[in-house]
Each structure stands twice: as structure tokens, then as C-alpha cells.
Design a protein around this nucleic acid. Structure first.
Lengths: 182, 182
DNA sequence: TCATTAGTGAACGGTTGCGTTCACAACTGT
DNA sequence: ACAGTTGTGAACGCAACCGTTCACTAATGA
């Protein structure tokens, strides 16, 4: 289907060129169609990218419940890593990287809604469950603490490249567990 | 001096348009000079931006030594916040935001050398001093832990806008101190 | 004063991309 | 078969920008 091909090409272009330099011409070429077909559906680059992101970001999965805090955090972070390394995840990283720029500001709401808020909610749920088991000190269950893992993963991915599974284990064992334990 | 004006305009343009869309014409116009004068000194946009960043980033200040871990961390993070909110700091954030893109890859070395490595070294020194005082558990003195603060500050700045002093205090008290304490 | 250097503003030829239009072909549904 | 819809590839006029060149002016130093 043509719309699917256009969305796919949009994400490819985002990852290759960033939002700032993404061009409708390149997207149309990547989808093997003409500009007219793209403009018939979306009036602007912004509209197209918003639609492509909404359509291509996977639904949020269930919050893991392994019976232990470490187990939950590991599963959550492995799932986050996996999302990060996917095409939609890579496109999200591009957009987030450009959020300091005025041009990408319209994407802030989408990033909150589809990426950050669900991720934060999942971490908070795991932490709450941990307080019930006496594994987590209650004062650690805050939005700020819940932001530590995504922040670190994004930052380290920029500095060193894609995170490994060992990176995920280190994040949980060296940062998250010491930070939240009772 | 003309070079100073060109560097200033370069940073202004970085913050306004990002690296991807920064143009030599806009830089020249911002410096109230002509393209020929810019090209006489720098062969490319990359060269210009590398030079401007090297010239305009302030030297790293001394590592605070207040006598207490909390005091040191607060001073360090206040200083980081202040740097972040400056023009060079804003330009650094733009470059870092684009590091996932091939085009900005040449800046990775500079970012490590002038921004990340010195910041990390300062945090590690403060932590090491804290182990000496029995305030910090020795296993917390790692590069990963030292990345928590910059990562969180950048992430939160994107999500919510410029950090306040209260944000800095919360970062120290809710995240850093619980994370590293003995 | 004169020679040299540097800067200015404009212009050049070329590239990329925008948003739009168009003639024609292909597809779909009645 | 016919009418309506959609897509294709090309073209349009315009804008922005590139890297370079140029005639002239201004500044500097001997």
C-alpha cells in the first residue's frame, strides 16, 4: 500500500538526514512515488512526519512482572533497548535530538504522549510494585528518578553508539538498583 | 575583530537553525561581512563550526571543594546549569542533539574532549573525595554513574525547557546523593 | 606617498528543493 | 463501456544556498 511505503520512506529519511534536512522529494523517491501523491495526503513536511510517527510507533507493551525488582527493571530496559535500536526508535532519537530547535517543537507533544510518558509510567509502576515488596524506598518513586534510565540510554548511545545488553545490565545494577533500593 | 564576530554569528546560527541547516551565507550576514571573507579563513562549514566551538567554549573551571559531598555536587551542577544556559552551552546542546546523524559525526571528538570528558572527570573527582570522607561508596565511582547528571540535565531540558535552580537541587538530593552514598 | 593586503557587495553558474500543475495512463466501480 | 479517481513523471517559477570571482574601497606598513 502506498501510504505504508511513504511512512517507511519517511522514517528512513529521518534517520538518514534528520528532520531539518528531510525533503519531501527524497521521501517521495524513497517510496517510489511522485511528490503529487504525497502532497495529496499531507499538506506539509510536519504533517507527514507527525502521521508517519503516529502510524509507525509500536504500541506500548505490558509492564513486566517477574517477581523481583531486578528482573522487572532488566526486562523493561531490554525492551527499551530493543525499541531504541528499531527504525521507529531511531527516528524518535533523531526527533528528540532536534527538540531544542524551534522547527521540531511541534513534535514535543507527540514525544511526550507516545514515548516518554508511557516509558515513565512503566518505570513508576515497577518501582511502586517494588515498594510493596520492601525492595524500593518510597521516596524513590518520582518522575525524576523515572527519567534516569531513558536519559542515560540516550546520552550513552550518542557518545558511544548502540547500547549492548551488557550496557543494559550495568545500567540496572550500577545505577537503578543502588538508586532506588530500600 | 572580524573573527570574533564570525564566531559569535556561528554560534547564533547554530542555536537558531541547528548544524544541519546552518548556512555560510547566514553566518556571514550575521557577522556583517561577506562570504569571501569567511571562505578566506575556513574552507568549509565543518571547519568553521569546529573552530568557533573551540574558540568560544569557556575553559573548564576548578573542581569545587566545599568540604561536603552535597556542597560539591551542588556547586558542580549549578556551574553545569549555568554553562548549559549560555550561548556556547546552547550551541553544544544543538550539536549533541545532532550527533546521531552522520553529518555531525566529526564533532564527536570535540564533544568528548571539551565537554563530556572534563565534566565526567570533575564528577569523578568529587566522588573520589567523598569516598575519602566515607560519604560515597567506592563502587559508585564509575564513568556510568558520572554520566547520570549530564544525561538527566540534557534530557529534562529538552522535555521541559531550561532547568531552574530548584531542578538542580532536586537532581542532587533525589538522584545523585541517594545513588552514591555509602 | 605608494605598495600590499584585506574587506565589501555584487554577481556568476550551478544545485537542490519547494509547492503546484499537467497530460496521460492505470485502476476501480457502476 | 464509461465516468470518476488515483498515480506517474515531467515541468514550472521561485527561493535558498553553494563556492568562486571581481572591481573597487579601505586599511596598514614602509
Amino acid at each position: 500500500m502506498l501510504e505504508q511505503a511513504i511512512f517507511q520512506a519517511t522514517l528512513d529519511e529521518l534517520v538518514a538526514s534528520g528532520y531539518a534536512r528531510l525533503s519531501m522529494e527524497a521521501v517521495a523517491a524513497g517510496a517510489q512515488t511522485g511528490k503529487a501523491a504525497v502532497y495529496r495526503r499531507w499538506a506539509s513536511k510536519e504533517e507527514l512526519v507527525l502521521s508517519a510517527m503516529r502510524a509507525m510507533l509500536p504500541p506500548v507493551g505490558p509492564v513486566p512482572d517477574t517477581g523481583s525488582l531486578r528482573g522487572d527493571l532488566l526486562e523493561l530496559m531490554r525492551s527499551a533497548r530493543s525499541a531504541m535500536l528499531s527504525l521507529p526508535g531511531s527516528a524518535v532519537r533523531v526527533i528528540m535530538g532536534e527538540l531544542d530547535q524551534e522547527r521540531a517543537r511541534p513534535f514535543l507533544g507527540l514525544m511526550h504522549e507516545c514515548v516518554m510518558d508511557p516509558g515513565k509510567a512503566a518505570v513508576l509502576e515497577v518501582l511502586r510494585r517494588g515498594t510493596g515488596r520492601g525492595e524500593v524506598r518510597p521516596e524513590a518513586v518520582t518522575p525524576l528518578v523515572a527519567d534516569v534510565a531513558p536519559a542515560l540510554m540516550l546520552y550513552r548511545a550518542k557518545m558511544q553508539g548502540p547500547p549492548t545488553d551488557a550496557d543494559v545490565v550495568a545500567l540496572v545494577d550500577e545505577v537503578l538498583l543502588p538508586l532506588v533500593r530500600a
